[in-house]
């Protein structure tokens, strides 16, 4: 019931969500010289460094490595940014929540949505890079929006939990920050699932983002369809988490104002 209420509020307040996402995207680089280009420059810098270290220093032989890497790195950036921003979203909007009639339910959606908009805006660079490395785009690219939707759900389901908890336990933000760094290495972003020895596969399989990143790779880089069954598993997991998260959020919503 409470989960339905959250969903209803989010749908009703979609205009507010759009406006807040626009604000986040706009504000992020206000006052900088290069503005939105920074969204593209950050992953490109990583790409150059990782390519240098992994392909040239360590000689890990993944062909077309920059294109391979960026295919996984861009969605990961979306994921980690929105989980981090979402976790502190209630605390960051304390002034709104304490003094105004403001629907807190929309804030997690705003965080994940902002990350997604940045991802979409960086897609042209990815497509150019794929073309430069001669990776043909197949029909499988049609599955991209679906993979993105799965990631959206997964990130959102995490954020409803962490945002709620962070109101009461402010350390969570830093725990999440370190957790994301660990997760970055334990997700096949700069390497491929197939080159990991089988006895370690279970470590990667603990992490639903493994399936999501692998799906981006298959769809954009390898020109194959995702493993639907695995993706379906992530959707199921995210939906369960989302319902529980929404209930936890809703139960605590009206005490946020007292703790912020």
């Amino acid at each position: 019931m409470q989960a339905v209420q959250v969903a209803r509020t989010v749908v009703q307040r979609r205009a507010l969500i759009v406006e807040l996402v626009r604000r986040e995207v706009k504000l992020r680089y206000r006052g900088t010289w290069l503005g939105f280009l920074w969204t593209l420059i950050n992953p490109l810098v990583f790409m150059v460094v990782y390519t240098l270290v992994l392909s040239h220093f360590l000689r890990i032989g993944i062909p077309k490595f920059p294109a391979f890497l960026l295919t996984g790195l861009l969605p990961w950036t979306w994921f980690s940014e929105s989980v981090l921003a979402g976790t502190s979203s209630l605390v960051d909007h304390a002034a709104f929540l304490r003094n105004a009639v403001f629907p807190a339910q929309v804030l997690p959606v705003v965080s994940v949505g902002t990350g997604m908009v940045n991802y979409v805006f960086s897609l042209p660079v990815l497509f150019v890079l794929l073309a430069v490395y001669g990776v043909p785009l197949g029909w499988t690219v049609l599955a991209l929006p679906l993979v993105m939707a799965v990631q959206f759900l997964l990130a959102l389901s995490i954020v409803y939990f962490t945002a709620t908890l962070n109101v009461f336990l402010r350390d969570l933000r830093y725990i999440i920050q370190h957790g994301l760094l660990v997760a970055f290495f334990l997700t096949p972003i700069m390497y491929d699932f197939s080159i990991v020895p089988a006895r370690f596969h279970w470590v990667l399989k603990l992490n639903p983002m493994t399936i999501v990143i692998d799906s981006y790779r298959r769809v954009l880089f390898y020109g194959e369809w995702p493993y639907w069954r695995n993706l379906g598993f992530v959707v199921a997991l995210a939906l369960v988490l989302l319902v529980v998260g929404a209930v936890v959020f809703e139960r605590n919503r009206e005490s946020f104002a007292e703790y912020l």
């Binding site: 604000r23 504000l27 206000r30 002034a95 709104f96 304490r98 003094n99 105004a100 009639v101 403001f102």
Partner: peptide, 13 residues
Amino acid sequence: ALLNLGLGFHPEL
């Protein structure tokens, strides 16, 4: 409701 003046504005906007 006007409960606390001005709070709830975003300063950069």
